[in-house]
Amino acid sequence: MKEIKHQFSFPHPPAVVWEYLTDAELLAQWLMPNDIKPVVGHRFQFKTKPRINFGFDGTVYCEVLEVVPNEKLVYTWKGGMSKEKPLLDTIVVWTLTPTAEGTILQLEHKGFKGLKNYLPYFIMNKGWAKIGKRLFKKMSAV
């Protein structure tokens, strides 16, 4: 399994659910502090608990890829020890479907790749040994 999928039904029209996905304050009430805007190309961040021993400093870097008001929202979801070298490079897709009772909200979180996908990068990158050591030091310090 390389992706996550969840579906929830809400007794509210899509427009209401949409607000909770795209308004920074409403989104922060249930997800995490953020500076989202439903504008394609907008870059924003979420702040969460770091998982240092896992190579994650707690900041999620996002960029809005697709906006269809009240229907669909897509953004990147990247994280790691820095913005430049994300260990986690994934995509979050929200889909809203109106029903007689309200809305079905579907979340897909996909694009998880393993170390294996980074092997060519490791092999090509001569600076890796240095990066690896630095990362190791950082992780050991915690």
């Binding site: 996550i4 969840h6 929830f8 809400f10 007794p11 509210h12 209401v16 659910v17 909770y20 009430q29 249930w30 997800l31 909200l105 979340l107 979180h109």
Partner: peptide, 12 residues
């Protein structure tokens, strides 16, 4: 996500 969506549900 499971726990966050539960939270959204409660909020709504």
């Amino acid at each position: 996500w499971k726990s966050k969506l539960k939270k959204l549900e409660a909020l709504l």
